[in-house]
């Protein structure tokens, strides 16, 4: 009698939301256990602090390290605060994006290779909720890291050079976070499609480079591609961003691209679960 009650309890259907919450909790636990939640923000903070400091001390650094003849006078105008913040964004775009893509390069493929994906998907967990929980972890870690790093850069720029308007910083932060999400969602899709983690990372970074190259080379025809987001973020922090149809189209195209990438990954994962 009691055994029957127990089995009844165990087959009680759980709602999709609670299953998703459990999956997301697992991703959070993974972020905490692997210490990613600590070291990735630290890397971004270090990058964010270095840019204002090096711009501020550039004349001193050149004087000490450069092989300049005695008596040569170097006149380097101190960059404006907005310029330094824009340079910081460029730093996040190179080393920061590299780190965050590499952190997530094996997010699906390593679990596929170890057989964990098939173990999870035989339970009543849909591939979509599996992928969206991964995506949520990406969103959390990337926004936290970028917020910490960009905030540190903002503080140091205000301290050493000049204060930058909060609104400009916030809007450029949001635009840049969107760009990081494009790179990460590409990583999610490629990590689902490819068995090799390194292959997924380099394909994602390559696709990101092609996107930004296209929108920079052909602003007239491809200026609406998500690759233009770093440029818009730069304009936002410089205070020269104006609402244009190209900017609106870029935002819409980015959201559609993100949705399409997750959908495609979902289709691939449904097939992969049958193959694995």
């Amino acid at each position: 009698m009691s055994g029957l009650a127990a089995s009844e309890r165990s087959v009680r259907p759980s709602s999709g939301l609670s299953r998703f919450a459990a999956m997301f909790g697992k991703e959070l636990l993974e972020l905490v256990r692997s210490l990613k939640l600590i070291w990735v923000p630290i890397v971004f903070i270090a990058l964010g602090i270095m840019q204002p400091v090096t711009s501020y001390y550039m004349p001193v650094i050149l004087e000490k390290a450069g092989n300049l003849p005695d008596g040569s006078v170097i006149e380097i105008p101190l960059p404006t605060g907005a310029q330094v913040m824009a340079e910081t964004l460029a730093q996040f775009g190179s080393l920061g994006a590299l780190v965050i893509v590499l952190v997530f390069m094996g997010t699906v493929s390593s679990e596929r290779n170890s057989g964990a994906v098939s173990m999870i998907l035989v339970k009543p967990v849909s591939p979509a909720s599996y992928l969206v929980s991964k995506w949520g972890a990406m969103l959390l870690l990337s926004s936290l890291s970028l917020l910490a790093g960009y905030g540190a850069a903002w503080y140091y720029t205000g301290f050493l050079i000049e204060a930058v308007a909060f609104k400009a910083v916030l809007s450029s932060f949001l635009l840049y976070e969107l760009w990081l999400l494009v790179l990460l969602t590409l990583t999610l899709l490629l990590s689902t499609a490819l068995r090799s983690a390194a292959g997924a990372a380099f394909a994602a970074l390559g696709a990101g480079a092609v996107l930004s190259l296209l929108s920079n080379l052909f602003p007239k025809y491809a200026g609406w591609l998500p690759g233009a987001l770093p440029g818009f973020a730069r304009q936002a922090v410089m205070g020269s961003l104006e609402w244009s149809s190209r900017f609106g189209a870029c935002l819409v195209a980015t959201v559609m691209l993100l949705a399409a990438l997750v959908l495609l990954a979902n289709i691939l994962l449904r097939r992969a679960a049958a193959i694995d």
């Binding site: 210490l35 600590i38 070291w39 630290i42 890397v43 903070i45 270090a46 602090i49 270095m50 400091v53």
Partner: peptide, 11 residues
């Protein structure tokens, strides 16, 4: 910056 690098190194 040095403190941050130290934390990273220790981790």
């Amino acid at each position: 910056i040095m403190v941050l690098q130290l934390i990273l190194m220790v981790i």
